[in-house]
Amino acid sequence: MKPLVSAFNAWTCIAISLFAIVILSVIGSMFANGHHSLMGSDEDPEDGGKVAAAVFGAVGVYGVFLLFCGCQAFVHRRQSRQGEIALR
């Protein structure tokens, strides 16, 4: 199998996805619980549950990115270890 992205891009995507999953999970849980720093003002959203659902949807998208880039990094690592034969 040939990788679609470079090894650097795959590992960068993994790092960014992990960071986004952690940060967005914290923000989503704060909206879900109605934390006063996010829901205490008049300009804040009325329904924190709907906002939390949207944020957790973004967490799912980043989870898919993490899975894809993890597979790409695995393919790069396998190629570098086994010396894949290239037919020209």
Rank of each mutant, 00 (worst) to 15 (best):
V26L: 09
H76T: 10
G49I: 13
A73K: 01
I14E: 00
D44C: 15
L66S: 00
F74R: 12
G28R: 06
T12E: 09
S80Q: 12
A15M: 10
A15F: 02
Q72H: 02
E46G: 15
F65T: 00
G48N: 12
F68E: 00
G60N: 07
D42W: 09
D42C: 07
F74N: 05
G57D: 07
G60L: 10
F74C: 07
G70I: 01
S25M: 11
V59D: 05
H76K: 02
C69M: 09
Y62K: 00
S17F: 02
F74M: 07
L24E: 05
F65A: 02
L87S: 13
L67I: 01
G40L: 08
G48E: 08
I85M: 04
Q82H: 07
A86W: 09
F31C: 08
Q72S: 05
G48I: 08
F19H: 11
V59M: 05
D44H: 11
F68A: 01
C13T: 03
E43T: 11
V59P: 01
A86S: 12
R78E: 04
G60E: 07
L4R: 10
K2L: 14
L38P: 03
M39T: 14
S29D: 14
G49P: 08
A7T: 00
K50G: 15
A20P: 02
R81P: 00
A73W: 02
I23G: 03
D47R: 13
G83C: 03
P3W: 07
